[in-house]
């Protein structure tokens, strides 16, 4: 008996090894694409900068309220790689703090939208043609029927214009798209023979949704989430740009663009920093998403 249980422990250990092996292979597939790898490096670099913004930026105090009129409108040089703005703040510092804000925004929005959208889509898709389907999907349709930007803008306009409300707006306009995607995939998978086999075994509906169906749709959903992160940045920036999101002096990239645009073209360098920041951030997420797609497709 003790002998067999030893064997069993050995077998269970082997399971862990096999799992590690699979991860390794997935990493190989990811690595294969040079662009995806670039995306990952870029993403990690930006994330590290954002997390340690206080230590990596040359003038951490310039992030928020700080005025130094002596240094205002200073063109790019070695001390201020992206120049300074109308209050004499280092733009590079502010852009890096902008990354931090963008990451926080993405993190919060995705971590609400992804689970909520996915669960709602799973339930609606699994019970296709019954009341959960109608309830969830019609509710989603309401949100989808309003142009996203207008929806977000009106929410921000009704509520107080600040960064939290901007995030609420983006979240509200974003979840139905996940729900719809998960819904269509789930309603296709729920009639697969392996789902029927699970039902025949007596697996409960909830388990079928989360253990049988979810692993099969997670890949595309995560890929979409990564690619969408870029859109979250864009929309968030647009809201801020229109003055309904983060307010100055918050170092939000969109807010900065709207603030600095006034001084274009005379002090042209001011606008370069934040726009470049937005572009780089979006590129990182897009490349990363492409890499993920490669990993999941390779299976």
């Amino acid at each position: 008996m003790s002998n067999t249980s030893k064997d069993l422990i050995f077998v269970l250990k082997k399971e862990k090894e096999m799992k590690r092996e699979r991860l390794k292979r997935a990493w190989f597939r990811f690595k294969r694409s040079k662009l995806a790898l670039t995306g990952l490096i870029l993403f990690s670099a930006l994330l590290v900068m954002a997390v340690f913004a206080e230590s990596v930026t040359p003038y951490p105090k310039h992030a928020e309220t700080y005025v130094n009129f002596k240094m205002r409108f200073h063109p790019p040089d070695l001390n201020h790689l992206l120049g300074t703005d109308h209050l004499g703040r280092d733009i590079l510092t502010r852009v890096i703090f902008g990354f931090r804000l963008a990451f926080i925004m993405i993190g919060i929005v995705i971590s609400i939208v992804l689970p909520v959208g996915t669960v709602l889509g799973l339930v609606a898709g699994y019970y296709k043609g019954r009341w959960p389907d109608y309830a969830v999907m019609r509710f989603a349709d309401v949100f989808v029927s309003i142009p996203p930007l207008i929806l977000a803008l009106s929410i921000c306009a009704i509520l107080e214009p600040n960064i939290v409300n901007a995030m609420i707006a983006v979240t509200l306009m974003w979840w139905p798209w996940y729900t719809r995607m998960v819904y269509s995939m789930t309603s296709a998978i729920r009639d697969e023979p392996y789902v029927w086999a699970a039902r025949a075994l007596g697996v409960r509906d909830v388990s079928i949704m989360f253990k049988e169906i979810l692993p099969n749709i997670l890949g595309p959903v995560l890929t979409k989430a990564t690619l969408d992160a870029a859109w979250v940045i864009l929309i968030g920036s647009a809201i801020s740009f229109l003055g309904l999101g983060a307010q100055p002096p918050t170092p939000d990239l969109g807010t900065m663009v709207s603030e600095y645009m006034v001084y274009f073209p005379r002090y042209w360098w001011m606008i370069i920093g934040p726009t470049l920041g937005i572009a780089v951030l979006i590129m990182a997420f897009n490349l990363l998403g492409d890499g993920l797609r490669e990993v999941f497709a390779g299976e």
């Binding site: 399971e15 096999m18 697969e192 023979p193 392996y194 029927w196 086999a197 699970a198 025949a200 075994l201 007596g202 697996v203 253990k211 049988e212 692993p215 099969n216 299976e299």
Partner: peptide, 29 residues
């Protein structure tokens, strides 16, 4: 009453290992 389907390629969950597939059945019953 149990069933074996025609195409094992679709009747087994592509994301689950053999162990997980069979263990689910044992765990439930």
């Amino acid at each position: 009453i149990q069933v074996v389907f025609q195409d094992p390629a679709t009747s087994l969950n592509p994301k689950k290992t053999v162990k997980d597939i069979i263990e689910t059945a044992i765990r439930i019953h």
